[in-house]
Amino acid sequence: MLPTAVVQGGRSAWKGPFFVAFPNLRQALENNIPIKTQARSCTILPNFIGLRFMVHNGKDYIPVTVTQDMVGHKLGEFAITRKRFTYKATKNK
């Protein structure tokens, strides 16, 4: 794992990592319900491991399953916001 975001992220150490408190965390872990969230900037904490999230990408919610290696990253890093350009030929010409 990389050094935690607290050390690397340019954020004051005394503040600790930025995270959003999810009220239904334990329930979600027990019942394996995905947590629907728009908090892309929430740091993945060690107690999120094994949880499933539905992370908003600006349009819809992308499923993200948190693993050990993801700790210290942000939720938004795993839900891409850009669509690959594909050329579509116009039908009515």
């Binding site: 794992m1 990389l2 693993t67 290696d69 993801m70 990253h73 938004g76 890093e77 795993f78 891409i80």
Partner: peptide, 15 residues
């Protein structure tokens, strides 16, 4: 290793 880590977890940086 750092890049491979990003790639393995499927983050934006790795992509």
């Amino acid at each position: 290793e750092n890049i491979a880590h990003q790639r393995n977890i499927g983050s934006y940086v790795g992509r």
